[in-house]
């Protein structure tokens, strides 16, 4: 495995408004600057409206820890696969249905590694990154805290079977 090198283009950002996945993807590809890039896989996570039940999501986070945690997950991905770039951009604050909560991208020479890395990043982000969602209802009142997904831990645990060189 040649995965010891952490791409200098690992781009980790937390932003309070306006995450545009199209612009992020363009920016990511433009910033790669490596002629060997043959594959870019990206994931965009959106705020669901649940058929009008939810007016918005309020995303609380632990600023001092969140960026470190995202960077740690990116470094684990870099140790595991030969990647030429990683981007993780996560929103916090008030997010309306249809708006982007998270954007993740991975670049590699061939597609297999970029696909795996993008999924690895999301599966680890879901269980490790200190963010908490709370629903806001159509009448403006706060709703419940969103529970962690039952299958999130299962999905993350799948990665533990394979060693990280």
């Amino acid at each position: 495995m040649s995965g010891a090198v952490i791409p200098t283009c690992a781009d980790i950002r937390l932003i309070g408004e306006g995450l545009d996945p199209g612009r992020e993807l363009e920016r990511f590809i433009a910033g790669l600057g490596d002629a060997n890039v043959g594959a870019v896989v990206s994931f965009t996570g959106l705020c669901r409206g649940d058929g009008g039940r939810i007016a918005a999501l309020e995303l609380e986070h632990y600023p001092a820890m969140a960026e470190r945690e995202l960077r740690r997950v990116a470094q684990r991905a870099c140790r595991r696969w030969s990647l030429l770039g990683i981007a993780v951009v996560h929103r916090y604050g008030l997010i309306l249905p249809g708006e982007t909560i998270v954007f993740v991208a991975a670049a590699s020479v061939r597609r297999a590694e970029a696909f795996l890395a993008a999924e690895f990043l999301m599966d680890h982000l879901k269980t490790d990154a200190p963010f908490w969602k709370r629903e806001r209802l159509p009448d403006g009142q706060p709703g419940g805290w969103v529970a962690a997904g039952d299958d999130d831990r299962t999905r993350r645990a799948r990665w533990d079977d394979a060693p990280e060189s």
Binding site: G45, L59, H61, Y62, A64, M65, E69, H90, I101, V102, M122, L125, K126, T127, D128, A129, P130, F131, W132, K133, W145, V146, A147, A148, G149
Partner: peptide, 23 residues
Amino acid sequence: HAPKDASLENVREVAFFPPVSGG
């Protein structure tokens, strides 16, 4: 992240929270 049996020795900041639900 730290398990329940982790030592607090020399620790300056301890955070407590429910399971995370970002992404």
